[in-house]
Nucleic acid binder design. Structure first.
Lengths: 200, 200
DNA sequence: ATTATTTCTTAACCTCGGTTAAGCGTCTTC
DNA sequence: GAAGACGCTTAACCGAGGTTAAGAAATAAT
C-alpha cells in the first residue's frame, strides 16, 4: 500500500526536515519508500525466533516489546506509542533471529521500510546515515538509563516515577502490562496501589 | 604524552585495520591523535557531575562504571577490561554532566581522544564515522541484552551466568563489586555461594 | 440482556534477599 | 612487627514481593 502523506504524524516529517535539513525532494523520496502496514490489537509485528526484516515507524496506536523468561513470564522491555520506532534493531542489524516479541496493544498503523530500501536511500541521501547514528546513539543511552533505573530504584519507586513522568501510559496500557514493565506481578502492583491510597 | 605504538593492544589496531580497512597512513594519523593517560588503582577517570570530555580506550587494567542511588548504594553498570572503551558516551555526546563514576580497579593505562581531535579525524578519515556507528550500535544492543537479563533472571541465575560466561572476572574483581554488579548485597552473595557449595 | 472472557483486586502463606552486627583472615603502611 | 584498613563470611531477624487461590469488576460476545 502506498503512503498517503496527509496521514503522517508531523513529527515524522519534522525529524527529517527540521532536524536533519532534508530537502523536499529528499523527504518525498524517503517517504515513497515506506509501506503502510496495519496490525490488529493483540496481533504481533514480530515474534521471537523471527528475523526483524524492517524498521517500523509507529504512526498510530501503541505496542509492547517483551521477552519471555524460562518460567514463562512475559517481561516488558518498553512500550511504544506514536512517533516511536518498533522492531528489534539488533536482529535487524545482525540478521539473527530476535528474542523479542512486539505486540499491538491497540490497533496500530506502521510505516515500514526494508533493509534493501533503506540501503538504497542511504546512497541517495547521505544525511540518512547521520540520522541513523543519531537514533542509535539515543537508543543506546536510553537503555543505559533504563538499566540504571532498574538497578537503583525499588519497584515502588519505579511505579511512582512512571506515574509522575509518563502518566499518559496509565490511560492506554492495562495494569497487568505496567506490572510486567515494572518487573513485578500484577497482584503486587495491586497491593502497592492500595497501600499508596491508604497512606500516601 | 605521546603514544608508543609497540605497547598498544593489538586488538586496537585490528579493529581499525582489519575490520574497517584503515590504511597504514590512516591508522598512524589516528593513533597520533590519542594521548596516553594513567589512572592509579582506586582513582577515578570520571565522577558524577563532570562532563565526559574524551573517549578512552582501555589498553591495560580494569575499571568499573557505577552510579550511586539515593540510599548511597553503589550500583555497578558494567566492568571494563583491556580492549574496552571507558567513559560516559551519553555525557560525551550531549556534553551534559554525567551521573556515572568510572573508577580504576587495577592500575589502568588509557588511550584517550578528545572530541575536537575526533571531529578533526572524522573529516580526514571518513571510515571513522562507520566505525563509530558500529560501536554505538553494538553498545546499544548490548545494554538492551543486559536489561533483558536483569528483567528475566534471578540473582542466583545472574551469578551462575556470570560464572559460566565470564569466569575471568572472578580472577580480577573483588566479590563485593561482583555483588554490586549482580545488584545484591555482598552478604547475600556470600550466602548464595555457600548454599551452592553445599547443594550444587 | 445474558453469558463468557478478560482484567483487577484481596487475602494467607512463604521465600528470598536486605539489614544489622560481629568475627576473621589478609594486605598495607608506618 | 604492630595497627589499621580492607575484604569476606556467618548468623538472626525482618519485610517486600512472589505464589496460590478465589472473587469482584469491567469488557466483549452471543
Amino acid at each position: 500500500m502506498s503512503v498517503i502523506a496527509e496521514n503522517i504524524n508531523p513529527n515524522f516529517r519534522d525529524l527529517f526536515k527540521d532536524k536533519f535539513y532534508f530537502t523536499n525532494n529528499e523527504y518525498e523520496l524517503l517517504l515513497s519508500h515506506f509501506q503502510i502496514k496495519h496490525i490488529r490489537k493483540r496481533d504481533y509485528y514480530l515474534k521471537a525466533g523471527e528475523v526483524c526484516k524492517a524498521k517500523a515507524y509507529l504512526n498510530k496506536g501503541c505496542a509492547r516489546n517483551f521477552v519471555v523468561d524460562e518460567r514463562g513470564h512475559e517481561r516488558i522491555l518498553f512500550f511504544a506509542f506514536e512517533d516511536w520506532w518498533l522492531g528489534d534493531f539488533d536482529s535487524y542489524y545482525t540478521e539473527k533471529p530476535s528474542t523479542n516479541y512486539v505486540q499491538a496493544i491497540e490497533d496500530c498503523e506502521l510505516l515500514t521500510i526494508s533493509k534493501e530500501n533503506f540501503s538504497f536511500l542511504e546512497e541517495r541521501i547521505p544525511k540518512l546515515k547521520q540520522w541513523y547514528t543519531y537514533k542509535v546513539t539515543r537508543s543506546a543511552s536510553a537503555s543505559l538509563k533504563r538499566m540504571e533505573e532498574m538497578k537503583t530504584l525499588t519497584p515502588k519507586e519505579r511505579y511512582l516515577n512512571l506515574l509522575e513522568k509518563h502518566p499518559h501510559i496509565f490511560q492506554r496500557i492495562p495494569l497487568q502490562y505496567i506490572a510486567a514493565f515494572l518487573n513485578i506481578e500484577p497482584q503486587s502492583l495491586s497491593r502497592m496501589r492500595k497501600q499508596l491510597i491508604e497512606k500516601p
